[in-house]
């Protein structure tokens, strides 16, 4: 599990209502309306919490004839707590976890539905956004400038600035009008 995933996982647990949902599902799998009744929450609120738990793999759902039933993911709950911290990058490097949380915060601030809302002025933040954009390009692939522009334009109108920044930050290289990813 990457540091980003671990942050997301424990954030999903860090809510009293979601802990109650988990406790209730420990008794038995349940559908939304039953959970809502037992926990005295609105069905929409229960659905929200279940989706949060599902996103991090804590619950799974199964559709039968009438209902979608939610259950705890057995493998997750059978794991000892120590197993979640065995990733070397987190167990030995707390800074990696902080960095992951910072990156996610920048992505949440500047990127929405795969569109870059604005190009950060601060370099540290801009690097996070450029690294996000870089994932649109494949390693070991050559692109013409036109192809680069088209790919970037899908994220932000100012493809020229972003293309230039990718080169300046040595994330991409260019020679004779051909571009490729450096890392």
């Amino acid at each position: 599990m990457s540091p980003e995933q671990q942050v997301k996982f424990f954030k999903a647990l860090a809510d009293a209502s979601r802990l109650r949902v988990i406790s209730s599902l420990m008794e038995s799998p349940k559908y939304v309306e039953l959970l809502a009744e037992r926990l005295e929450l609105a069905a929409s609120t229960v659905s929200f919490h279940l989706k949060k738990l599902e996103e991090v793999g804590l619950v799974t759902k199964e559709k039968d004839q009438y209902y979608i039933t939610y259950a705890l993911t057995k493998e997750v709950f059978d794991k000892p707590l120590s197993a979640w911290f065995e990733s070397a990058s987190v167990a030995t490097n707390e800074e990696a976890a902080r960095e992951a949380a910072y990156r996610q915060k920048i992505i949440d601030s500047f990127i929405k539905y795969n569109k870059i809302k604005s190009i950060p002025v601060q370099r540290k933040k801009r690097l996070v956004v450029l690294e996000y954009l870089l994932e649109a390009f494949k390693m070991d692939t050559r692109y013409t400038e036109r192809e680069v522009n088209i790919i970037i334009a899908d994220y932000h109108d100012d493809f020229a600035t972003l293309r230039r920044e990718l080169i300046n930050e040595r994330m991409m290289a260019r020679e004779g009008g051909i571009y490729w990813r450096m890392r």
């Binding site: 860090a14 809510d15 009293a16 209502s17 609120t45 929200f48």
Partner: peptide, 10 residues
């Protein structure tokens, strides 16, 4: 106060 942070936000 009861740790239901998302619902508080809503």
């Amino acid at each position: 106060a009861s740790g239901r942070t998302d619902e508080a936000r809503f």
